[in-house]
C-alpha cells in the first residue's frame, strides 16, 4: 500500500539501449537516469532533441522496459501500460475513425464502464475542455488546438492518477499554446488544494513553458541521455497571470545555459 511518503514515480539508474532489428546497431538512449516525483507534483523534462525524453516517458508509461535499472510507480515496478498512468502523445494519437465523443469514450469503454455512466463521464470531460458542441466531429475536422483539447479530455476521462505528456503543446501556434498552458494549469489545480492535484510528467522543448508550469524541471543531456541537473522552480502558485516574474527569467537563463551547447550539436546530428 502506498503511503504519503511513497514517491509517485521513482526511477533508479534507468538505462535504455535500442537495438535495431535490421542492422543490429545499438543506440544508447538513456544512461543511469534517477529521479523521483511526489504525488501532485508537476515535473517537466527538457533537453535537446534526441536526448531520450520520449524514451523516458515511454518507460514510465510501460510501453517499453528499461535495459538496466528500474522504474517504480507507487512503489511497485511498472509492468506494461496502465490506465492509472494516462498518456498524451506528441501528435495526440487520436483515433482518426472515432469522433471526439468516440475518442473520449474509449478509455471508459476499455475499462468496462457501463453505457450510462460512460455518457456522463464523456459529457463532463468534453465540457471541461471546452469542446461541447463538437462531439460528432472527426479529428481531421478539428483545429490543432481542438485536437489537443480532445486528447486532454480523453486522458481525463480515465481519471488517471498521473498524467504523462509528451510535448503536448508543440503542434499548436504560439497564442493557442499560451491559452492552453493556462488551461492545463487550471485543470491540474494551480490555484487549488495541492492534495487534489495529480502528478504530471511533462516533456517539452520550451524552457519557458517548463518553468512557467512546473514545480521542478529535469534537464537531460544527450548522447547518451542523462540527468544534467534537476532545477527547483521556486515560483509561488497560483501562477496563472504571472508569466513575467524576474525570477522566472533567471531560471530560464540558467536552464538554457545548461543545454545550449548540446542543443546546437543536436541540430547537426539529428536527421
Amino acid at each position: 500500500m502506498a503511503t504519503l511518503t511513497t514517491p509517485k514515480i521513482e526511477a533508479r539508474s534507468v538505462s535504455k539501449i535500442y537495438v535495431s532489428a535490421r542492422t543490429g546497431d545499438k543506440v544508447e538512449a538513456l544512461r543511469g537516469v534517477s529521479f523521483s516525483m511526489k504525488p501532485g507534483e508537476f515535473v517537466s523534462i527538457v533537453g535537446p532533441s534526441g536526448c531520450g525524453k520520449s524514451t523516458l516517458l515511454s518507460l514510465i508509461a510501460g510501453f517499453a522496459t528499461p535495459s538496466a535499472g528500474e522504474v517504480l510507480f507507487d512503489g511497485k515496478p511498472i509492468d506494461g501500460p496502465d490506465p492509472a498512468r494516462g498518456v498524451m502523445f506528441q501528435d495526440y494519437a487520436l483515433f482518426p475513425w472515432r469522433t471526439v465523443r468516440g475518442n473520449v469514450e474509449f478509455g471508459p469503454m476499455a475499462r468496462g464502464v457501463d453505457k450510462t455512466r460512460r455518457a456522463a463521464i464523456v459529457a463532463r470531460n468534453i465540457e471541461m475542455v471546452g469542446l461541447a458542441g463538437f462531439e460528432d466531429r472527426y479529428p481531421h475536422e478539428l483545429s490543432g488546438g481542438m485536437r489537443q483539447r480532445c486528447a486532454l479530455a480523453r486522458l481525463l476521462a480515465n481519471e488517471p492518477d498521473m498524467w504523462l505528456m509528451d510535448e503536448p503543446l508543440a503542434a499548436v501556434d504560439l497564442q493557442t499554446r499560451v491559452i492552453l498552458q493556462d488551461e492545463l494549469l487550471r485543470l491540474w489545480g494551480d490555484a487549488g488544494d495541492p492534495a487534489q492535484r495529480r502528478a504530471v510528467l511533462f516533456v517539452t522543448h520550451g524552457i519557458d513553458e517548463a518553468v512557467y508550469l512546473s514545480d521542478r524541471v529535469i534537464v537531460l543531456g544527450r548522447r547518451p541521455g542523462q540527468v544534467k541537473e534537476i532545477v527547483d522552480i521556486d515560483l509561488p502558485r497560483p501562477r496563472i497571470g504571472a508569466r513575467t516574474a524576474p525570477r522566472a527569467a533567471a531560471l530560464i537563463d540558467h536552464i538554457w545555459n545548461l543545454i545550449r551547447a548540446e542543443a546546437a550539436q543536436a541540430i547537426v546530428e539529428e536527421p
Binding site: 510501453f63 506494461g80 501500460p81 490506465p83 502523445f89 501528435d91 483515433f95 478509455g107 476499455a110 480515465n158
Partner: peptide
C-alpha cells in the same frame, strides 16, 4: 500507427480490443 496501439493500451484496452478498435 504504433502510437494509436500504444494510446489504446494506455487507456486500458485489452489485446482483443486493440485488434477490434
Amino acid at each position: 500507427d504504433r502510437k494509436l496501439v500504444d494510446a489504446a493500451r494506455a487507456l486500458g484496452a485489452s489485446p482483443l480490443l486493440v485488434l477490434r478498435a
